[in-house]
């Protein structure tokens, strides 16, 4: 049952987005998130929507997969909308009942906040759906490479992430095994209130931790036996290299950012809405 959780939610497909260098995708996601906080007007949102739609179309990932990520934030989304809707002061009151009132300003902020959050999730989903976890760590290691000069342990961080990704399914299987072994001997993980449920997890976590440490110890020894001695002097089996499509992608990204900034700046002079 636990094994069914997919990690990194990669969706294999043959698209230009899948082939792009992970660094491009990381930068693009960052730029897109920043741009969402730059836009303040309807026109800005239209630009962002067009860009997102284009990217989704190019990724060849079914739209339903993109929306899946939204389930996790549905509560957050509702709270944000409700608070903004009722508690924003404004000039024109549209509806008013008891102590609450909905103003034109409130309606606008609520809508903008909702769109912003939804786009945020969809935007980052596009990246995780089109990039394997391995590529992602590789991209981070290479992309953050300049930080090495500031003594940030970039290689070590990427290695930790890669190993974590490798061991998550193994540890999940192990959790499943321990759970079944304890259930066979009468342990109860399902009934009781929250406190009781949490308490029943302790006998599960202790053996899991012990085994995780043992595995870590074994793995460290195996890595040393295979000459691992940090990032120094290490070569790559699959080195990341920019290709012409990556530069084109950066170009498109630059154009998008310019458009968003232009809309923002122009919006200060011309009141479009």
């Amino acid at each position: 049952m636990i094994k069914d959780i997919t990690l990194g939610q990669y969706y294999p497909a043959d698209s230009i987005l899948h082939k792009l260098d992970p660094r491009v995708k990381l930068v693009a996601t960052l730029v897109f998130i920043v741009s969402l906080f730059l836009v303040k007007t309807w026109v800005g949102y239209v630009v962002a929507t067009l860009f997102l739609a284009l990217v989704i179309r190019m990724s060849r990932v079914p739209f339903s997969f993109m929306v899946r990520g939204l389930k996790a934030i549905i509560m957050l989304l509702m709270i944000t909308v409700v608070f903004n809707l009722f508690l924003t002061p404004g000039n024109r009151v549209l509806v008013s009942f008891w102590k609450f009132q909905i103003t034109d300003e409130g309606l606008r902020t609520a809508a903008f906040m909702a769109v912003r959050l939804i786009y945020l999730i969809i935007g980052s989903s596009v990246m995780t759906l089109t990039t394997t976890p391995n590529d992602l760590t590789d991209g981070m290691e290479k992309g953050l490479g300049p930080l090495k000069k500031l003594h940030v342990p970039v290689h070590e961080m990427a290695m930790i992430m890669a190993i974590a990704l490798r061991f998550i399914p193994i540890l999940m299987e192990e959790t499943d095994k321990i759970m079944k072994a304890q259930m066979a001997r009468g342990a109860d993980f399902e009934t009781g209130n929250l406190v009781q449920k949490a308490k029943s997890l302790v006998p599960l976590l202790v053996p899991l931790f012990i085994s995780a440490f043992r595995r870590a110890n074994d793995l460290a020894m195996a890595m040393e036996a295979r000459c691992y001695h940090g990032g120094e002097g290490r070569t790559k089996m699959k080195p990341l290299r920019y290709e012409s499509r990556d530069f084109k992608a950066y170009g498109v990204l630059g154009l998008y950012l310019c458009a968003v900034i232009a809309v923002r700046v122009l919006g200060n002079y011309v009141r479009l809405i």
Partner: peptide, 23 residues
């Protein structure tokens, strides 16, 4: 506990990578 890579061929390449063998 001794396989480091998430794909078979990447794991086999782990040792040579550490030794600094050209790609």
């Amino acid at each position: 506990n001794q396989i480091i890579g998430t794909i078979v061929e990447e794991d086999v390449g782990f040792g040579p990578e550490n030794m600094g063998v050209p790609t």
